[in-house]
Simulated scan of single mutants.
Amino acid sequence: MKKYVVYLMAAIIISGIAYTSYSAYQTKQDQQQMKAKQQAEGGLETGMKAPDLEIEQDGRMIHLSDLTDQLIVINFWATWCPPCQQEIPELNAFAKSTSIPVYGINVTTAERRLSDVKQFLKKTPITYSVLYDTKGQSEKTYQLVAMPATYIIDQTGTIVGKHVGPVTQEMLKEMVRKIGG
C-alpha cells in the first residue's frame, strides 16, 4: 500500500512538472507569434499607449490626446491610396451609425500638395472629421508601414484595436463590441 501511495505521489509530481513546462513553452510560443505578427503588420499594437500627434483641424493645430476623452477611431490615409479610397464609404457608415467619433488623419506629407487633398475632399464626401498631419509625425510615431491603418483608442489613451488595410463598418463594429464599447 505504501508503494502505491509513493507511485501515486510521484505520478502527480511528474504530471505537475510536465504541465508547468508545457504551459511555459506555450506562453513563449504565443509571445513569439505575437512578435512575428507585429513585425509582419508593423506599427503599434493593442495595449500600447497611443502616441500624441500635433495635427491640424480646421486650420488650427491640436493634439490627438485632446480628442481621447472618449473611445475614438483614428484612420491614417492618403488620397493616392486605392484601399484608403475604398474604405471611405465604410468609415462614413460607421460614423453615422454609432456615437464613436471617427478621425481620418491624412498623412499630408505623403501627398504632393495639401491643395490635392482639398480637391479630393470636394469630390469625395467624407462625413467624419478629417485631420492633417502636416508635420509628418504619424508615419514614424505610429510606425506605419502601410495605409490605411486604423486604430481604436480608449479614454485612457490606450490602443484597444488595430487593423492594417481597409476596414468595413462591420469590422469596426465587431472590434468595438469585442472591447466592450
Results as ranks from 00 to 15, higher is better:
Gln70Val: 06
Arg112Asn: 15
Lys37Ser: 13
Phe120Trp: 10
Asn92Ser: 10
Met61Ser: 15
Ser65Arg: 11
Ala50Gln: 10
Gln33Ser: 12
Ile55Thr: 08
Leu67Asn: 12
Val73Cys: 04
Gly47His: 12
Thr68Gln: 15
Arg113Asn: 15
Ile74Arg: 05
Trp80Phe: 07
Glu45Tyr: 07
Ala110Trp: 08
Lys96Thr: 13
Pro82Ala: 02
Glu90Ala: 11
Lys35Arg: 15
Gln33Arg: 13
Gln31Arg: 13
Lys35Gly: 03
Met48Asp: 12
Glu54Met: 14
Ile55Cys: 09
Ser115Pro: 06
Ile62Thr: 08
Leu44Met: 12
Asp69Met: 11
Ser97Asn: 14
Pro83Met: 05
Ser115Tyr: 06
Pro51Ala: 07
Arg60Val: 15
Asn92Asp: 10
Tyr103Ala: 09
Asn75Trp: 02
Ile62Asp: 11
Ala36Trp: 02
Arg113Glu: 14
Val107Glu: 06
Lys37Met: 13
Leu71Pro: 09
Gln38His: 11
Asn75Ala: 02
Gln39Phe: 08
Ile100Arg: 07
Asp69His: 15
Gln119Asp: 12
Ala78Gln: 03
Asp116Cys: 08
Met61Glu: 14
Ser97Cys: 02
Gln38Ile: 03
Thr79Val: 04
Pro82Trp: 00
Ala110Glu: 13
Gln70Cys: 05
Trp80Asn: 01
Asn106Asp: 13
Val107Phe: 03
Gly42Ile: 00
Gln86Glu: 11
Leu64Met: 13
Ala93Tyr: 06
Gly43Trp: 05
His63Asp: 12
Arg113Ile: 03
Tyr103Gly: 06
